[in-house]
Design a protein around this nucleic acid. Structure first.
Lengths: 181, 181
DNA sequence: CAAGATTATGTACATTTGTACATGTACATC
DNA sequence: GATGTACATGTACAAATGTACATAATCTTG
């Protein structure tokens, strides 16, 4: 098995290593050698699979966006199954923010998209996806507001040891999802 | 005047150039030569005033944090003077988010603080300052929630051409500042 | 099994980088 | 005005970097 070739798996392991590295050094901190070392492949491998370093970083962000999309499926099901939408959403958010590397990569994706418009679709995967899911339980405006709040909680989590507790999140999300009418 | 020395002014112009550059290339994209060129000083100047490149980046973020603190004073006065807190806050936020370079630097500061805990106090200047100001008009929890929302709006603004309109902001901020019950 | 295509990897090289430092210049203090 | 101190800057250099590429190993196809 060890001598067997697996180009797709190899490429994936490189992208995966790059994605994990982004959480540590940022997109701008990536280097061919760093990624190659983390992935356990020689330098030539990363330059063979990616014509340029930017392509590699882009692929890593795309990989992260795809992971976001998959997570969204779980959120949709949980929200559909649960009775209290704000409370369920708060619980999902707590778990989401507990994964610090993931939170870091998501933020890096936002910043990268801010600098390079062609990356915006990747950043919108999470945002638009969550807005759409929440739109089944609230008005579009309220769904968008709740998503924005969760992104704010993302920044909060990154800069505080103590993350937001589920109760506070639920209160805020309830207020946003059910505006006084 | 041109031949006159002004070490403090010189240092400030270097830091200012670095700060503006952060909005373009990120903290990690700073180089001595880049900053020197932007500030219009020779390479030796940046290495003379800052022992290391990290020090230079740190000084630039500190500079940005200080600008945040100054802006907060204006916010406090506007909120004290206005009659409708959410509406006034929404208006301030719209102006704040319209300054894209500033928004980029603020986000870079958040990420930098996420990676290097010693920078957290700088990131907290804006966050804690705004929470404190808002605490004069709402409960501490509500003030924190509103601040988190505004930070979320920061990320939204960075990744969308069309920023959030004041009306939508006011609605969400009102819901957060005046929780039902 | 032959031969062509794909995958793999070590090495080389021009650039860019951070930083050190020698040298020079303006300033203050006496 | 002498002289020590802070400011200023050009240059040098080792280290790191992106990328190209020659060569080899493996797979596929006939």
């Amino acid at each position: 098995m060890s001598g067997r070739r697996d180009p797709e798996g190899r490429r994936r392991s490189i992208v995966d290593a790059a994605c994990r590295l982004i959480a540590e050094v940022g997109v701008g901190g990536l280097t061919h050698r760093l990624v190659a070392a983390r992935a356990g492949v020689p330098l030539g491998a990363t330059t063979y699979y990616f014509k340029t370093l930017d392509d590699l970083g882009e692929a890593a962000l795309e990989y992260a966006a795809q992971a976001s999309a998959e997570e969204l499926d779980a959120w949709e099901q949980a929200l559909r199954a649960g009775t209290d939408v704000p409370k369920t959403l708060a619980s999902l958010t707590v778990d989401y923010l507990a994964d610090r590397p993931r939170a870091l990569v998501e933020t890096e994706l936002y910043i990268a998209a801010a600098h390079r418009p062609e990356l915006r679709p990747l950043a919108h995967v999470w945002f638009d996806g969550l807005v759409e899911i929440l739109s089944a339980h609230a008005s579009p405006d309220a769904a968008r507001a709740a998503t924005i709040f969760i992104d704010g909680a993302l920044l909060f989590a990154l800069t505080h040891d103590q993350p937001l507790d589920a109760a506070a999140l639920a209160t805020s999300l309830a207020a946003l999802l059910n505006p006084p009418g």
